[in-house]
Design a protein around this nucleic acid. Structure first.
Lengths: 273, 273
DNA sequence: TTGACATGTGTACAGCGTACACAGTTTGAT
DNA sequence: ATCAAACTGTGTACGCTGTACACATGTCAA
């Protein structure tokens, strides 16, 4: 879950826990006010959590360009500089938001077997990223890998080692799956953003209609044209994912045969179980 | 050829700010010379090409954050707004630069066979993008796909159809390869940017040392730790790429067996044993 | 000569991230 | 009970960004 956003600071210090503020024992200068007027509630101060949560909401609602310190501060009813008491700068804000989103990724059951496990992992990652399209750019752009990312890695590792893969394969296999998955979503998101017709009437991401392609240069592209629009489809995602999984099956240690539906026979189908 | 910097028309005294435009080049003398010194040469005007070429140079030399209209204009010895005669806005500039870079991708020989062809294509794309790290973010971020991108698609399609793959596989297979490749490079570039030691002493992209991971939560990750740094290695790239290719081999039509080459292929070792 | 057209200049503006000095409240030590 | 230190939010200000707009200049066709 989200919770562990901050703790990774080496020193404790940060803490920011929820409840620590004590009862106001003093009275002091406040005397000018009636005693009763003191608000017993410690006042809901801004916290890093609150900032990150609001940031992700802003991102989801208004897109990545809308995420500015000023707008975020506005939504929190606060002046822009107030945010800097809780995040060092905008980069740290984005890292925090990213980790928050990554923490939403649902890890598949660990009883699943390597193939189903990795497949579900890929789907889960894609689902989460599509829910926060504004975070895809930061995801591929930033080097940081929060603890939530580590948990994903741990899952992949575990499921592969359990299946009898060597350490090398267990390490690299899930990385390949995630690389493919993240790459797909990264390419997919901007193409979804600009509308495209699923029937392939016009290929998304092309600056010009297929009609005016030079038949000399692009004979096959023209012939296959109706498929161009498929770059962002579920089916295309599944297809590539299954190919990676097939590739892993091909190097699986022979000791434990998996239910790969045998038959190198075409099968062609994207999904196999 | 980036040096087509300006030309400073002699006649013009108007000034335009004093000192800048230092980009040097010609004719220090001048000034206060006979008024008649009209320049008969039509003057090498700024062109869109020149702007794009200079932009890519700026990007490569100083990183993506350095690519601003003002800095680019400076390098061209011109006022910022002058650029807008050649590109509609910064987005179009970036699209142009991106397409220019993509056009540098060397397509492998078409006699190569699907497996080697796609492998070389992946390597070629990666090589090109690593040569222009500042362009990776735009590559995954923008929906546009210039004609150079189409040529890459055409190549993949051709090599697959030649090998006897069905239209569906010929369409989707190369897309899977490219998705993986682009995803890998996208993840790789920011991790390369922040230094990391290849020996895995500290894993890149981690905000904290492996030592302080909770052994309960991350047992396998800790055990495998030396491999963490490998996220950005050539070997990891090759590994995943070979898995995708294996996956395609698994759905290859049986009619034409391919030489599942175990040979050669650049040092990139991820081979099975 | 004229005048349309293309190209580069200069100024200006809104918006961005954030440095810095300050004010209010809360807390801990005395 | 007092006082100093510490947080946390405020206000102002700076440098940088992309780019709208009006204008100066150079070229070429009529």
């Amino acid at each position: 879950m989200s919770s562990d956003v901050e703790h990774m600071r080496s020193g404790r210090a940060i803490a920011t826990g929820g409840g620590r503020r004590g009862t106001g024992v003093d009275s002091g200068t406040v005397a000018t006010l009636p005693v009763v007027a003191r608000n017993p509630v410690p006042a809901p101060r801004l916290t890093k959590q609150a900032v990150l949560v609001e940031a992700i909401a802003l991102l989801d609602e208004e897109g990545d360009e809308a995420l500015t310190m000023r707008r975020l501060a506005d939504r929190l009813g606060v002046v822009p500089m107030a945010l800097y008491r809780h995040v060092a700068n905008k980069d740290e804000l984005i890292d925090g938001v990213l980790d928050l989103a990554v923490s939403e990724v649902q890890l598949p059951s660990s009883r699943l077997g390597w193939r189903s496990g990795l497949r579900e992992l890929g789907h889960s990652v894609r689902r989460t990223m599509l829910a926060h399209p504004g975070l895809v750019a930061p995801l591929v752009t930033r080097p940081s890998l929060g603890s939530s990312g580590l948990a994903i890695g741990e899952y992949g590792l575990a499921v592969m080692l359990d299946a009898g893969f060597s350490v090398e394969h267990a390490d690299r296999g899930p990385k390949a799956v995630l690389t493919y998955t993240i790459g797909f979503v990264a390419l997919e998101v901007p193409r979804r953003r600009q509308g495209f017709s699923a029937d392939g009437a016009d290929a998304p991401g092309l600056d010009f209609p297929v009609e005016q392609l030079d038949p000399e240069r692009f004979p096959h592209t023209i012939a296959v044209r109706p498929r161009a629009a498929e770059f962002v489809s579920d089916a295309q995602f599944d297809y590539g994912l299954e190919r990676v999984l097939d590739g892993l099956a091909a190097v699986q240690p022979t000791g434990k045969p998996t239910q790969r539906t045998t038959t190198g026979v075409r099968g062609g189908g994207a999904r196999r179980r």
